[in-house]
Design a protein around this nucleic acid. Sequence first.
DNA 1: ATGTGC
Length: 475
Amino acid sequence: MDLQQLHQIQPYLWTFPLKSGESRKEVLLYGGRALLESMDDKVLEQITHVASLPGLVGAAMTMPDAHWGYGFPIGGVAAFDAEQGGVISAGGVGFDISCGIRCLRSNLNLQDVEPHLSTLAERLFRVIPAGVGEEGFLKLDTKQLDQVLLGGARWAVQQGYGSEADLEFIEERGCMSGAVPANVSELAKKRQRGEMGTLGSGNHYLEVQVVERIFDTVTAQAFGLQEAQIIISIHCGSRGLGHQIGTEYLVSMAKAAARCGIHLPDRELACAPIKSPEGQQYIGAMNAGINCALANRQILTHLTRETFMEVFPNSELETLFDVSHNTCKLEKHEVEGKSRMLHVHRKGATRAFGAGHASLPERYRALGQPVIVGGSMGTGSYILAGNRDNPAFASASHGAGRALSRHQALARWHGKQVIGELAQQGILIRSRSMRGVAEEAPGAYKDIDLVAETTEQARLARRVAFLKPLACIKG
DNA sequence: ATGTGC
């Protein structure tokens, strides 16, 4: 991206000035010079399109890890007011509805795990279904699936996959309200029948990590983190169900937009007024998709615990937090001194509530929400904490963010070579897809250290801990 | 992201 066309407001905040005759809201880009210079021009084009949608409140924003997505950029944040004709967009949520990360903290340290790492990786790889179309141990009929869509992680716990203690540390206490299973098609449910408790493909992973650095000892203590501790991160979403919801509602939203006279600068931006029948139907379906993802990560947590118990009989894995980064949520935000209810799209952006927010578990309330910034395999992850003065509708980065397209990555790396290079650094990769591994090569991603540092400098969240990968199960 | 697509 050419920074000449931007205006720097603060050291880590840029705006794209309006051209004469252009009618849109403000565009804000969070990030430093290095990240923005290497960012695709498409990000600016896409977020400028978002800024032209009806009912947008404040500015359309991108996080430091933003990259080109479908319609909305990944790393995009946009809040809409239903009372002012605000819209909801399937492309603004993302096709993998409620894709997110579950983080588990263990009572094990590096010394305990290192000698058994290969055994652990092998067993996790055998137990955790991963890859395109891979199915799990559960086969659900439509009626059971409706219960999943209503109950989320709470349903999974009721089935014996985890405990009440997990629920406290999941967004929405593990169960998203407002889910309407009837708004989810039979086809979407059929696709999900065998896919509960599966990882999926692409950038999804289950990773065994070690806390390598603590940045903020007080917050780390509240989060239960210390150096050399073993952490497990599970990154996945709502699988075939979420994807099918996205596909179907994209069509219904395109029709709604045409009927309501909404000008779409890009057909991928299909959206419907929040107050329209299509908008309302999508919200019910999306909330069901969120519950699907929450249940999915809960079942995977259960499988992870079972596997750890086989290798480390005294292991205990507690849920540190579970946060989504592909959602649209109705939240209360202060705008120019006024409290308003807004539909906040976060696509490839993590919710980052600051200290004192009522929805936070008591354990974290004085310090802020754990913000999980997932790395690519090999480059580590960060846990940050939400700030009370977050300027972006309580949002922050979600990961390293791609720097090269999948296509570019395939042209540059081979899967086996990537696995070999990571093995030399002591990082074990287990995957059924060598193509997938090549696409996910660490070099195809932005510098996560820079993303985390910039996220802190832009006051979006503050760094608490850095996690180094040890073993990664890939889709 | 995805019962992977020009």
